[in-house]
Amino acid sequence: MGHRKFQVRIALFNRREALKLGTASFAGATLLPGCDLLSLPPLALPDSIPETSSNEDFYVQSAFGTPDLDPDSHELVLRNLGEEVGRIDRATVNSLEARPIEHTLQCIGSHPGLLFIDNAIWSGLPFREVLNNLGITPATSAIEMKFQCADGYSTSIPSSDLDGDPGDPEARALWLVWQMNGEPLPEAHGAPFRFLTPGRYGTKNPKWPVELDWIDEPYLGYWEQSGWSNEATYRTCGFVLSPPHMAEIEEGTVQFLGAAFSGGAAITDVEVTTDGGDHWEAATVTYSPGPHIWTLWSHSWTPPGPGQYRLQVRVAADDGTMSHPNPFGTDRLGGYDGGMEIIIEVL
């Protein structure tokens, strides 16, 4: 994302990461969680947010870190009710003609202090097509797909996610992808291949899969056993990506930049308030391709004078849902559903 392209790095931490983490940047300094106050040059603010995030800037989150594996020899074992029915490796997917799909991923733990949402052009195929190519038919009695991954992570999704909802043209099917923004999938993002599960948070988009079993009983994975949502469906939310919370800004016109997302529902409205919600103004939508892809927005505002101001965003989707007025959201373990608020200091 363009709002994170900054070169200053101190103690393995740079401006791009500071904005990603939503840390407080003020008076030429940044306060990091668990760190001392670090003196940094004034923060340069971007003019826009790129429509797609680069592989280097795309957020990375996993339960146990990136595993040490050889992508060329890595295999995914496919099972029906425990019985092996096939295997997939890099040679398998490289023999197939990949198609591009634009798709946004958001971490279920994202919130105003952790801006883990990004968009990319992935390449692969609907997983059903991969299975058809291998002559594999999932067990008809299966109710879930259980994933085991090379890092020790596990999760499950309904078997119906394989094909999506035939009655809903916006309901995408499960995809297996092996390229990201025109390059082989990076190791941190799941090389040699990973799954994209439309409509569900990153917890349901397994990386480095080693086993997929169609099972006939419910299964709770790693995060789900800790109380995180098992359904993990995306919730309507709005983020302010620039300027960062508690930024000090010179007097004049302020350019706010942000993103809105609602998974399989399309964002229809983005509004901002600078007076605590007494008045709302429509933001300018700069990118909004439709469901499963983030909406980017901007808003120019001239403060009446020096002082401290609050800006909050609210968004609505075409399924009738809206971001919650609580800027911190309503359910930490269910996914962020708030309209983010920031405070800025105008000098």
Rank of each mutant, 00 (worst) to 15 (best):
G2F: 07
G2C: 05
H3M: 06
Q7C: 07
A11R: 11
F13K: 13
N14Q: 13
G22P: 09
A24N: 07
A24C: 08
F26H: 10
A29C: 08
P41F: 09
L43R: 12
S48M: 08
D57W: 02
F58C: 00
F58H: 02
V60L: 04
S62W: 05
F64H: 14
P67W: 08
D72M: 01
D72C: 00
D72E: 15
L81Q: 07
L81H: 03
I88Q: 03
D89N: 14
T92Q: 02
T92L: 03
N94Y: 07
Q106H: 01
Q106M: 13
Q106L: 01
P112W: 08
G113R: 11
L115W: 06
I117L: 09
G124N: 02
R128L: 14
N133Q: 13
G135P: 06
I136A: 10
T137K: 06
M145R: 01
A150D: 12
G152W: 07
G152I: 12
Y153Q: 02
D163S: 10
L176P: 03
V177N: 00
M180T: 05
N181V: 03
L185R: 00
A188I: 08
G199R: 01
P209T: 06
W214G: 01
E224H: 02
N230A: 11
E231R: 03
R235Y: 04
L241N: 14
L241D: 14
P243F: 11
G252Y: 15
G252P: 09
L257W: 08
A259C: 09
A260S: 13
F261S: 07
A265H: 10
D269L: 09
V270I: 12
E271G: 04
E271H: 12
V272F: 13
G277A: 12
A282D: 15
V285C: 09
V285N: 12
P291L: 01
W294R: 12
S298E: 15
S300C: 11
W301N: 11
P303D: 03
V315F: 03
A316M: 07
A317N: 11
P325M: 04
P325Q: 04
N326Q: 09
P327V: 06
F328D: 10
G338R: 05
V346D: 00
